[in-house]
Every structure is written in structure tokens, then in C-alpha cells.
Nucleic acid binder design. Structure first.
Lengths: 334, 334
DNA sequence: ACGCCTATTGCAAACGTTTGCATAAAGTTC
DNA sequence: GAACTTTATGCAAACGTTTGCAATAGGCGT
């Protein structure tokens, strides 16, 4: 069947009206008589008619598209591998769709230097959600200054001109520290890289919480945010320093799991010898053995909020950053 | 700075040429004198000029966009949670970008019933990559019959009118069975749901491999493809049947990890009492303890191939399904 | 000096919508 | 029944590209 493309004019002809009427009918414009509207809509459905989005976007100067820009640190173009990030993207996708928008999945590789030009001037999207603040925020700043509708997933305490949505990382760190110490840890250690905006907050919170609970000397093991790095670092530390810590607050669940593997291989008991707390609450946290105590980030709510704030901006409203609630989920690892 | 949008006509004026010349210059059309081309291009760069994609698409009848359609089984709109699927998407993203295309992330919720109408007639994308055959393939069939440029990630043995790229699932099953038995398993069990096209192949291969290795009686524990379901099912089985198996071939790593958790909680030794083999080789396979022997799927290559085949179709070439190599990665769980 | 070929550029139409404005038909008021 | 309002529809322009064709200029052979 040589399925030939219907354009609005064809549909209008079928319905015996003009294209303007057809257009308005499809948009349920009350200018058009109810019967006419319904007739056109029924016809459209029957013929599987769909508007040419390109033409529509050109005319409307709007795309009904939201771009999600994965902001990776690594210069080397790398695929994302932390399941948590992907979870965030997936939940954003859901929220975007629920609002009737489509999702353009992009990254710094495609968007280049001038995000405003690429997305907005280029009429590829009406607004952008940036996932991951990364270590350098200059490009985000530029885009924001150029007036690009923008929301960033990151640390909401960031003092910047753009809107950030994220968890209360500081509080998460506090909770983790207090929990570890309440469980008996005297020498808790932070595992991660405070160079990241979000992780820096977690680390600060961790130190503050520990101090408040009466532990002044905490360790910091600075590593990349991958399970492999965590595994290697713990192994190395055990070999060189021995077991001079009895609690770990890992900056992410993947990091925690990597650390736990190293501990288990050396027959360090979790939680008896070392208490472990992670961050994120990915699916694996519950499935690992022992299951992982962690700080849960509500990605579902995050997605909703990111999109809501972006759409508000598109509507010309002034919006500000906001923090998501987090919760400590106690499991076997502590 | 009230960054005002440059259109091609403005850029042309700046360069002192007509819009047609400017357009051709940007496309490096040799009709235009080299100097002119370079002058226009330099000017474009300086002013961060970018073409209005909507207008361009309208005129060209091409979008330079590839849609990725996540085909979830569940009627309930659910976010994806298997890290492997997300890995696939991420690698497709990479490959798509490398070809200069953009990626529209979509799903059955947005695309509705008539994929051809939505994506192609609607000028949202030039072609579609469907991730996941799922249990019902009618919609894929319809789209293919309507002539939609299409490649599916699934089981390449599927006898269908559309092009499928996927791993050699049958061989994977065989390798897993042979490996389990070589390691001493007498009563291997398959964990998964053969209703899925891909899993059915894995199961068939598993049975064939076992039989060839001299084990005729294999068990099948039919479960949803989630770690939680695996955990519950193994728990339930241990309680009701006791430990009447000594090898598990799980249809995915997540399933394997869920099963392993149940085993570990009941002090069943892995690999001494039960050998476990998974499928996919997600990051967690290496990080779990004991680390998980598994059949690796090459998602990187998958992404490349999916995109390559789709572009070939767009070029009018006839392409056919193809299989990816897989490999058994031996780790501690066997 | 003329015609012809090549190199470079510009003109104008077309892609398919949406919408301000004009129009036509029908109803209302005095 | 004239003037006016209301209701429903159509006309035509505009969104910003790309490209077939026409046009101009310069070079070259005779």
C-alpha cells in the first residue's frame, strides 16, 4: 500500500472545509462550530493524519521539545555508565511526556560550545534540562546568561544565575555520618571526590554530622566516582594502612558496592567490622548482599520538578532553585 | 545582551551576498567561490549563527533525527529500570551522534498506535530504532509494512519483515549450559520468561547445550525479568522444593544478582553449591561478590550496527538482520 | 568583434502550518 | 426592513530554509 502522505490541505478537502478551518478544528478552537470540529477530528483519526511537525514548528516558533543535555566531565566522549544517572534521565523522560513534550537526548558533543544557539536559535528545543553540573560550569553559565530556558540537575545550594534542582546533599551527608556513628563507628571515612559540586556538599554534611556526633577526625579517600575506582582504592588502602576505619560513607551506591566488594574479598565483615552507607538508592542497593544502607534520592519527583520548573520558565514565570527531600534507607550494610 | 536571532538572510547581508549564496556557502557547495564560502563560514562562526532546524526540515523533507522507541511491555507507563537497556540506549546515542544525527527519545506512550504516521509523516524523525521486541510485535509489523525505515534491537532469528540486530541468544544459552555442566552442575535451571523472543532463544540454546553435554533434565523457573522477581522466586523455591538444582542460567544479570542474593541469605555457597551464569555483562556483574560469570553482549557494537543499518535503509539500500558476537566471561560465580 | 563556454551569483518558488483580517450568513433590535 | 451584532468560515501572508533556473561577467577561440 503506497501510503501517501496527507497534508492538512488534503484533510480539509476531505472534510469539505478550508485549511484554516481544518487547522482550527484540530486544535479544538471554539471559533469553529462543534459539529465541524468533530467531523474533522474524526476524519483525521480515520486517516491516521498527523501534522507536519517541521512546518508547525516553523510557523509557531515553538517546538514542543525539551532537550536533555547529559553533561559528562570526561573529555573523552563516553557512554554513561552510572545507573543512577540513567534513572534520572528515564524519569525526566516520563515527566516530559506527561506534559505533552518530546525529549531530545543530547550531550556536550552535539551541542558544542554555544548551547543557546544550538538549541534555541536552532529551533531544536524550547528549553533544556542539564543533567550533571560537572566540574566546570562555564557553559551552563553562558547559556543561562544568554537567556536560555534552563534547569539543572545538581546541587541546589550552588550560587548561580540558573535554576538548580537537586537533593539536599548536605543533609544527606549529615544523616549518613550520624547513622554510621550511631551504629558504633568511631572512624568513618568519606569515599568520593569533593571537586564535584554535589559531592562537596555531601562531604561537608558528612564532616558536620560527624562533628556534631562527637567524632572530629574523619578520613577522606578521594577517588573517581566509579565502582572500579572504589574497589581499587579500598584494596590499596587496606594493603598500605590496614583496616584503620570502621565506617564508609560512599558518595554513590556504585562506589559503595565497589568498596564492599573489596572488603568482602578480604573477609572484612559488613556491618560488623565496617558499616557502609551509600547514596542514591539504585536498584542494586537492595539486591546486593548484604543489602546497602543508603540515602535515597527521589528521581521520580526530581523529574517532575525539573520539567515543571522548565515549563514555568517557558511561561515567563520566575522560578528558583529547590531541594528535594531525601531519606536514609536502613538496610543490612550498617 | 538581548541576543537577537540571526536568520540566514541577516548573515547573508553581513557577508554582502544573497541568501542563496549564503545557504550554499554554509553547505560547502563548490558552486560558490572558495573565498566566498570561507568568508560566510567565518562570519557564521563569529556570530554563533545556527540554522533554523524547523525551516530546514520543512524544506528538505528530512529531519536528520533518529528516534529511539523504547518498547516496554507493561501497559502501565513505567520507567526503565534494567541498566542493560539503558546501556543500549546510551550506546545508540553515541553512534547516532557520530553520524551527525540527533536522537529523539520516545516510547509507545508518545508514538501511539501508528508509528509511521507519528514519526515519518509527522516529520519528527527519518527513521526509528526500536529497543525491545517485547511480547507483542504487531505494532512493529505495521510500521514496517507501512514502509517505515526501521531497525529493531531484539532476536535476529525472528522471522519478520523488519530488520533485527541482536546477539546470538541461542549460542549464549548453549555456552551457558555447557559451562555450567563443565563446572560440575548436574541439575541446571533456567531463570526467566521464554515468552520473550530473545529469552526464548536463550532457553532453547540452554536446553540444547545441556542435552549435548549429557544432561537431559533441566528445570525452568518462569519469572518476570527483574531482580526482585528472581529473589522472590528462588526464596520460594528453596522453601518448597529445597535445593534441587546446582546451576542457574539467568536470563539477565539483574535476574542473576537477585537469585544470588536469595542464595547467599540462605548460606548456599556460590559457586560450590550452585554455579551461576548471567547474561548481558552489566557493570555490576564484575562488582558483585562473588563476581558474576556471564554472557557478554557488545552494546557498543550493537549501537554502531543498528545505526549503520538504519542509515543504509535511508539510503535506499536493502539490509538484512544480523547477529552480534557474544562471549562467555568467566568470573567467580561458577 | 562575435559567439560560446565556464564560473559565480541572485531571483523566486516551494515546503505545510497557523492566524489576523475580511467576509458571509444568520439572528436581534428598534 | 435597516442597522447592528453574533457566528462560522475562508483568504492570504508569514515562518526561514533550499534549489532549479536565469542572469551576469569574464575568458577564449576564431
Amino acid at each position: 500500500m503506497p501510503h501517501k502522505k496527507l497534508k492538512l490541505a488534503d484533510l480539509a478537502k476531505l472534510a469539505g472545509v478550508s485549511t484554516s478551518t481544518a487547522s482550527r478544528a484540530l486544535n479544538d478552537n471554539p471559533l469553529i462550530k462543534k459539529e465541524t470540529r468533530e467531523r474533522v477530528q474524526k476524519l483525521a483519526k480515520e486517516h491516521n493524519f498527523s501534522l507536519n511537525a517541521a512546518a508547525s514548528r516553523l510557523r509557531l516558533q515553538k517546538t514542543k521539545v525539551i532537550a536533555v543535555l547529559i553533561n559528562l566531565d570526561s573529555e573523552t566522549e563516553q557512554s554513561i555508565d552510572d545507573p543512577f544517572l540513567l534513572k534520572v534521565v528515564s524519569d525526566i523522560n516520563l515527566a516530559v511526556n506527561r506534559q505533552g513534550y518530546e525529549l531530545l537526548l543530547s550531550n556536550s558533543f552535539m551541542a558544542g560550545i554555544d548551547w543557546y544557539g544550538y538549541f534555541i536559535d536552532g529551533r531544536r528545543a524550547d528549553g533544556v534540562i542539564v543533567v550533571g553540573q560537572g566540574k566546570q560550569q562555564a557553559l551552563i553559565d553562558n547559556a543561562a546568561k544568554a537567556g536560555m530556558p534552563l534547569v539543572v540537575w545538581g546541587d541546589p545550594k550552588t550560587d548561580a544565575d540558573y535554576v538548580v534542582v537537586g537533593s539536599d546533599n548536605f543533609l544527606g551527608g549529615e544523616l549518613a555520618a550520624e547513622h554510621l556513628i550511631a551504629k558504633g563507628a568511631k572512624n568513618p571515612m568519606f569515599l568520593g571526590d569533593p571537586a564535584h559540586a554535589e559531592l562537596s556538599e555531601r562531604y561537608s554534611g558528612f564532616c558536620a554530622g560527624a562533628e556534631r556526633a562527637g567524632v572530629t577526625a574523619t578520613q577522606l579517600l578521594k577517588i573517581d566516582i566509579t565502582s572500579q575506582a572504589a574497589y581499587d582504592a579500598i584494596n590499596h588502602k587496606l594493603r598500605s594502612d590496614g583496616l584503620d576505619f570502621d565506617g564508609i560513607f560512599a558518595c554513590s551506591d556504585m562506589v559503595a558496592l565497589g568498596a564492599m566488594k573489596a572488603l568482602k574479598e578480604r573477609y572484612v565483615s559488613i556491618p560488623n567490622d565496617v558499616h557502609v552507607v551509600g547514596f542514591d538508592d539504585i536498584a542494586m542497593a537492595d539486591i546486593s548482599f548484604p543489602s546497602l544502607t543508603t540515602i535515597r534520592q527521589d528521581t521520580r519527583q526530581a523529574g517532575e520538578l525539573l520539567v515543571k520548573k522548565l515549563l514555568a520558565q517557558l511561561n515567563g514565570q520566575k522560578v528558583s532553585s529547590s531541594q528535594l527531600d531525601i531519606a536514609l534507607i536502613e538496610r543490612q550494610s550498617s
